[in-house]
């Protein structure tokens, strides 16, 4: 790896100050499992000048039930979330998503904040030494359009209508389905509004802004939530398609529903049409099937990823049925 300046921050204030000083020339490092891969491969046109380690800040690794809210510190490791009894009991989708992310070792290292802040996956974007200077790096085009796009967006391009990469996070759709909010050093926003699409960024975070905490409301009534991931291998892999859903059933009918897909577009894809399709309905094979159809009604697959549309349809159906 090429060198950089490195700071083990002691306090959030200090971390923010260092970031402020470097502007977009510094990166935050926590688990490091995404960032170090990018640095080793030198995929970015501008190599960071400094890394600010926030693992050295104490007290950011916790899971607390607080009144009607579950609070999770930004630096809580995915593995700890996956095995936490309260998370497993009341926030099934999150426990399942955290437990299916990456590999056991990476879950011991990777944090919840890191999992939602991770960069997009695209083999052109990630190719070492900036071999493909794509749109996202300020270049002229998306190489996936003419290239091999078996793992790319089925819901169109973004970043000036051109980048067809997908957002790989497993926990992001779960947090969105669970209606979580994210707290940063500057603001508190619904997780759904956290993701953004711009050159060299996937979130709304400013360069000197750091995620500090997640808050998830206790699910109303007896809402159940689940997460399903389709990947070629049962571990290590990123999702080809994943989906999380939280569904509240009252008097045998769906009272409310939140369904979110990921790995199908450049940011998590809330399947609003699927939600609409089941609200007021009984949950069964045929309504779930209809919801799956609705989820993909606006899909525009590329030449190699038509199968992802079918997968998205089925994974939505199965996730919804799992909540029944």
């Amino acid at each position: 790896m090429r060198s950089f300046e490195h700071f083990n921050a002691r306090t959030m204030e200090e971390a923010v100050a260092i970031l402020g000083r470097y502007g977009d020339r510094a990166r935050v490092i926590a688990g490091g499992t995404d960032l170090l891969g990018k640095l080793k491969d030198e995929i970015l046109p501008k190599y960071p000048e400094a890394l600010v380690n926030i693992k050295s800040i104490s007290g950011m690794d916790y899971i607390r039930e607080d009144n009607d809210v579950l609070k999770i510190g930004a630096l809580t490791r995915l593995e700890d979330i996956a095995v936490h009894p309260a998370v497993k009991q009341h926030f099934g989708a999150l426990a399942e998503a955290a437990g299916r992310a990456a590999s056991p070792h990476l879950r011991e290292m990777g944090t919840l904040a890191g999992n939602i802040c991770q960069d997009i996956r695209c083999w052109y974007y990630r190719y070492p030494n900036n071999r493909f200077p794509c749109l996202r790096k300020g270049g002229g085009r998306c190489y996936a359009i003419e290239g091999d796009n078996r793992y790319h967006s089925i819901f169109g391009g973004t970043v000036d209508d051109g980048c067809y990469a997908v957002h790989p996070s497993d926990t992001a759709p779960a947090l969105i389905a669970l209606d979580a909010v994210v707290r940063t050093t500057k603001r508190t926003i619904p997780l759904e509004d956290f993701f953004d699409v711009k050159v060299s960024a996937t979130t709304v975070l400013d360069p000197d802004e750091i995620v500090t905490e997640f808050e998830i409301p206790q699910s109303p009534g007896k809402a159940g939530s689940h997460f399903i991931k389709f990947a070629l291998r049962k571990t290590i892999d990123f999702a080809v398609v994943n989906c999380a859903a939280m569904i509240l059933i009252e008097e045998r009918k769906v009272a409310s529903a939140r369904v979110c897909l990921n790995a199908v577009a450049v940011k998590p894809y809330r399947a609003v049409k699927a939600e609409q399709a089941i609200i007021g309905q009984e949950l069964n094979e045929s309504t779930a099937e209809a919801a799956g159809e609705s989820a993909i009604s606006q899909a525009t697959p590329l030449k190699d990823n038509g199968y992802m549309v079918q997968l998205a349809k089925i994974i939505v159906k199965r996730t919804i049925l799992a909540c029944a």
């Binding site: 052109y124 190719y127 493909f132 290239g147 091999d148 070629l232 291998r233 571990t235 892999d237 990123f238």
Partner: peptide, 28 residues
């Protein structure tokens, strides 16, 4: 699952790492 993927436009081997070249894990 094991497959080598070349970019049709440039001839570049795209999946030359052990995340994208998928060989069996213990669970598969």
């Amino acid at each position: 699952a094991e497959e080598m993927v070349w970019d049709p436009a440039t001839g570049v081997l795209l999946n030359r790492n052990l995340l994208d070249y998928k060989y069996a894990t213990m669970l598969d």
